[in-house]
């Protein structure tokens, strides 16, 4: 979906999908490093979280922080639905992302055995 939306927004050539799995990689998405750092701190409950809240509010805006928190909360839920039900990949997703999954090491996740 990230690849598709970057294509639509004309920023596909700047997109580096390694930024989704590697905290040190720049995704190419504007303010992406800050947003992924926030996501990681929220999921991992790290001490960086309070500072990152303030940084996002300061650099992007308070509404953007609330929006980012909503996306984190949504996907903390969606992953549990997917892995709790062992759902298969949708046909479109499987065909469109097989190469990327290899490149990013997603096929190595334990949940891959449940989902393929």
């Amino acid at each position: 979906m990230l690849r598709e939306s970057s294509k639509r927004s004309g920023t596909l050539d700047q997109l580096n999908l390694k930024g989704t799995v590697n905290a040190d990689a720049d995704s190419g998405v504007p303010q992406g490093s800050l947003l992924t750092a926030f996501a990681e701190a929220a999921v991992r409950r790290t001490d960086a979280l309070p500072g990152l809240r303030e940084q996002i509010a300061s650099e992007l805006g308070a509404q953007e922080l609330v929006d980012a928190a909503g996306v984190v909360a949504n996907f903390q839920r969606m992953v549990r639905i997917a892995d709790g039900c062992g759902i298969p990949l949708d046909e479109f997703t499987r065909d469109a992302t097989d190469d990327v999954r290899d490149e990013l090491g997603i096929h190595e996740y334990a949940s891959a055995a449940n989902t393929v």
Partner: peptide, 17 residues
């Protein structure tokens, strides 16, 4: 793209295939 980057990062941190 910003929303989907956050979504992808949360999914990756949870090792969700």
């Amino acid at each position: 793209p910003q929303r989907e980057l956050v979504a992808a990062r949360v999914s990756a941190l949870n090792e969700c295939f």
